[in-house]
């Protein structure tokens, strides 16, 4: 049951491909629907079609960046605690 081989980026890209294709199609469709059906926001700043896509992308990148920052300061080997 040992690991066969280390991961490599080509295999990862290949495995990701179907998810990325489906995700991209649904994302584009949701943008079209948002535009066609007339986007409505709660506060004004969110009142344009595509707001959620933009916000989702930015939020995702900021969250990962902040997590990496915290990790740089606080990550330790998983043998750090002996219990």
């Amino acid at each position: 049951m040992a690991e066969k081989q280390p991961d490599n980026s080509d295999a990862t890209t290949q495995r990701l491909q179907p998810f990325v294709v489906v995700g991209a199609i649904v994302l584009l469709a949701s943008l079209v629907v948002d535009e066609v059906f007339g986007h409505q926001g709660f506060f004004g700043f969110d009142g344009f079609a595509g707001f959620y896509a933009l916000f989702g992308l930015l939020a995702g990148l900021v969250i990962i960046a902040l997590a990496k920052g915290i990790g740089a300061a606080l990550k330790r080997p998983d043998t750090y605690y002996d219990d």
Binding site: S30, D34, G50, G56, I64
Partner: peptide, 11 residues
Amino acid sequence: LQLLLAGGVAF
């Protein structure tokens, strides 16, 4: 869907 899939793009 937009929100989540855009987050997926970031991922």
